[in-house]
């Protein structure tokens, strides 16, 4: 990735102008035209580098204070199917398969954010019934110690 591409990604991700012509503002910062910036954004979207242009909300500040990480122990041969089913629930924000360890047999992870703890538990139970897996645990967050935006390319920049 060229240095200009790296700078463009940082401007688009961390420094996006809330302005009538945001891509023109970014272009002025980087010495590109507005059209060039838009063309690169479309290209990054096509390549999957940019998932979407959107907002990330601070979950506590919009009332979604209950945050449950549900860990599932799923037979390996059913992972594909169950991962797809759990991911299809709109309440599930993240669904990952992860490596297991001798001390930690859970191989599928789903995140649920809701206003109330009881809702998370009810959703987990619905997910459990939908896929027929009873071996799961809901790990609620008690305290946020850190939540920061990813720092890309900083080591190249120092």
């Amino acid at each position: 990735m060229t240095e200009l591409e790296q700078r463009l990604i940082m401007e688009l991700g961390d420094n996006f102008p809330i302005d009538s012509r945001p891509f023109a503002v970014i272009g002025r910062r980087l010495g590109m035209t507005e059209e060039e910036v838009i063309a690169r954004v479309k290209e990054f979207i096509d390549r999957g580098i940019i998932r979407r242009l959107s907002v990330a909300l601070r979950q506590q500040n919009v009332g979604f204070t209950a945050n449950a990480m549900i860990v599932w122990k799923v037979p390996p041969e059913r992972l594909e199917e169950i991962g797809g089913t759990l991911a299809s629930f709109p309440e599930v924000t993240h669904c990952y398969e992860r490596e297991t360890l001798p001390d930690w047999p859970y191989n599928l992870y789903t995140m649920i954010h809701r206003p109330y703890r009881e809702e998370c538990l009810a959703i987990a139970e619905r997910l459990s019934q939908a896929v027929g897996i009873k071996d799961y645990k809901a790990l609620f967050s008690k305290q946020e110690l850190k939540r920061s935006n990813p720092q890309y390319f900083s080591e190249e920049r120092e």
């Binding site: 991700g13 907002v55 990330a56 890309y152």
Partner: peptide
């Protein structure tokens, strides 16, 4: 309320 606004990057792709 908004933590960030702009491009959501797929970190693995970069």
């Amino acid at each position: 309320i908004i933590r960030r606004l702009g491009a959501i990057i797929d970190s693995r792709k970069i």
